[in-house]
Amino acid sequence: MLNNEVHALRRAHTSTSKSRSKVSDFFLKLWAFRASYLFIAPFMICFIVFILIPVLCAIVLSFMYYNALEAPRFIGWDNFRYMLSQDLILIKYALPNTISFALIIGPGGYICAFMLAWLISILPGIYRKWFTLALYTPSLAGLVAMSIIWTPLLSSDRLGYLNSFLLNLGLISEPVLWATSKEHLMNSMIVVTLWKSMGIGFLAMLAGILNVNPELYEAGRLDGIRSRLEEIWYITIPSTKPQMLFGAVMAIVGAIQSSGIGAALSGMNPTPQYAGHMIVSQIDDYGFKRFELGYATALSVILLLIVFFANKFANKLFGTKEGE
């Protein structure tokens, strides 16, 4: 009996010594690389304070009822049940509109950004910067500046620039409600979003294309590449995968963030017959008008998951694999 107790004490002492040794080794390694940790500390602090903690708080709040006046009350999965079974505006308008809009704007804007970046890359240097500036500038325009430009163009009366132009050509017999009708609002949103989609992702792809080693093109010609299309497929795209991945992520985020364009163009919120109503619009409605912050947070969590899986898919396509 006594021997068993002695063995147990020895094992406990040994395990305690090992744990203390691991802790001391951890702090020794931390101190040995203190300069490296000091350099990454600003990023880690900002990431934890402004991204990690808010995301965790949002996940917790999505399981609660909160109206900004009373204390949050835990309600379990009720917000998500309501989302799937009773929120008819979300199911009938917001979700289908968001999916169709993102499927057009995401790949469409991404392909346009790559093709325009490639076309600019083959221009002489004296013209390249001016074309780059002309294509990048619209992405800097906010909703107010954008509406000042596009509202007169898409005005629904005869004085609207587009209607006036088409009427003078005889292509239409009466003004078209480009921004205030259910049939045309989504198309107008897509055109405006593509116009302002040449943002930082476009610049990243342009920089990647310009930095491709010219010797690779020479080696490709020696190996049998005979056309520009083959150069793009076999050399340009594989050589700019990191920039293309970044551009894909920015295209996904930009497609999700462009939900306010419908309200800016139509001057109505919600948009006519919910033609331009998106998930982000639904979040704004419940969060800032109805003050149902718990449900708005649950919608935000679902949107976060959609963006996360879209980014994972982009990483599968353009992520650098081991050995490349």
Score class of each variant (00 low, 15 high):
M1T: 11
A12L: 13
A12P: 02
T14L: 15
S17G: 13
F26Q: 03
F27V: 10
A32D: 10
R34T: 04
F43R: 02
I45T: 09
C46A: 10
I48G: 03
I51V: 15
P54L: 06
C57E: 13
I59P: 00
N67L: 05
P72A: 05
F74E: 03
F74I: 02
I75E: 00
R81V: 13
M83Y: 09
Y93G: 06
I99M: 14
S100M: 15
F101A: 07
L103N: 05
G109N: 07
C112P: 00
F114W: 12
I120C: 08
S121H: 05
L123D: 11
Y127V: 12
K129L: 11
F131E: 01
Y136E: 05
T137A: 14
L140C: 14
S173Y: 08
E174D: 06
V176M: 09
W178A: 04
A204I: 08
A207H: 07
I209F: 09
E218R: 14
R221M: 11
L222P: 04
G224N: 06
I225Y: 08
I225R: 07
R226I: 10
S227G: 05
T236F: 04
P238V: 04
V249G: 12
Q257K: 14
Q257A: 14
S258G: 03
P270N: 03
I283T: 03
F288D: 05
R290I: 14
L299P: 00
L299K: 00
L305A: 15
I306M: 14
K316C: 13
F318L: 14
T320F: 08
